[in-house]
């Protein structure tokens, strides 16, 4: 095969792959929007669900999902920053660094249902917390941790060595160099990773189903140990009533709201990542 033909074949193959991905995503969005838009109105967004979701809205499901991921973010961010700084600045042994990387990547590959089972056994059964939204936030935080740690770690590594040297040469000690030079860079990286993690976490059903959520009859939780309702578990419950046309329409509506939230978080994360790349190149 001539060089020009090989080039053309590979070029066509990559265009085909990218186009197929884009097309699948477009159709998914289009179908959800087409079916879901009919359910969206003021009442649907701001009223409580009734009749097991077949009537009313999804207000408390939205609040429950946002509460879960807000606290997951608050737990995850400091842990991820600490881990990334420890790995980058204090862990000098190459073997231990490699082991740390394997653990982080390994954690990223654990199926989400396993996190749910772990939460059920450790928190609900052993620590006797009961079904609690806060436990759900902890589990989601652990699930997001690898994404955020890796984003923060790459952000720290993108800080040019000359910045560290220049700061040290001014008489700043190691902690001051971390706080004044590395942390601002790592935080922006970690936050961009956090949004990508949140985009994944808000759509997760399995890890929170057994430990944090109830399917109906719940409004704003009164304490850390109360359950919440959430969008993914609500969609699951509605999908199980697929014979009811109204329930199905609400499931499409809730899916549209969920996918919009995922898109917002993903966009914020990707925007942060692009901004970080631009500033590190400067």
């Amino acid at each position: 095969m001539s060089r020009e033909l090989t080039n053309r074949v590979f070029s066509t193959a990559t265009w085909f792959a990218a186009g197929l991905c884009g097309l699948v995503l477009f159709f998914m969005f289009a179908i959800i929007t087409w079916n879901g838009i009919r359910a969206i109105n003021f009442e649907f967004l701001f009223a409580a669900s009734r009749n097991f979701g077949a009537a009313g809205g999804i207000f408390y499901q939205i609040i429950g999902s946002l509460l879960l991921i807000l606290f997951a973010a608050l737990i995850c961010l400091p842990l991820a920053l600490g881990t990334a700084i420890f790995k980058s600045e204090y862990l000098h042994n190459a073997r231990v660094q490699k082991l740390c990387a394997i653990l982080v990547y390994g954690l990223n590959g654990v199926p989400s249902v396993i996190f749910g089972i772990f939460g059920l056994i450790f928190f609900v059964n052993v620590l006797q917390t009961g079904v609690s939204w806060f436990v759900g936030s902890i589990i989601l935080a652990i699930m997001m941790l690898p994404t955020v740690v890796l984003a923060a770690y790459h952000a720290i590594n993108s800080v040019p060595e000359i910045y560290r040297e220049s700061a040290s040469a001014l008489g700043l000690n190691r902690w001051q160099v971390i706080v004044k030079v590395l942390l601002p860079q790592a935080t922006s990286g970690a936050i961009s990773g956090l949004f990508l993690g949140l985009a994944r976490a808000i759509g997760e059903t399995a890890p929170i189903m057994f430990i944090a959520t109830a399917f109906s009859g719940i409004d704003i939780p009164g304490s850390f140990l109360d359950p919440v309702t959430s969008l993914p578990t609500h969609i699951l419950a509605l999908a199980q009533q697929a014979v009811d046309a109204r329930a199905l329409e609400n499931a499409w509506g809730a899916s549209l709201v969920l996918i919009s939230l995922v898109t917002v978080f993903s966009t914020l994360g990707l925007w942060g990542r692009m901004k970080l790349k631009t500033s590190s190149l400067r």
């Binding site: 040019p160 000359i162 910045y163 040297e165 220049s166 700061a167 040290s168 040469a169 001014l170 008489g171 700043l172 000690n173 001051q176 030079v181 500033s279 400067r282």
Partner: peptide, 18 residues
């Protein structure tokens, strides 16, 4: 750290912080 405050250093390539 204190020594480096007494003995300052400027490098080959200008490095200003963002």
């Amino acid at each position: 750290a204190k020594l480096r405050q007494e003995v300052g250093m400027v490098f080959q390539k200008p490095c200003v912080f963002p």
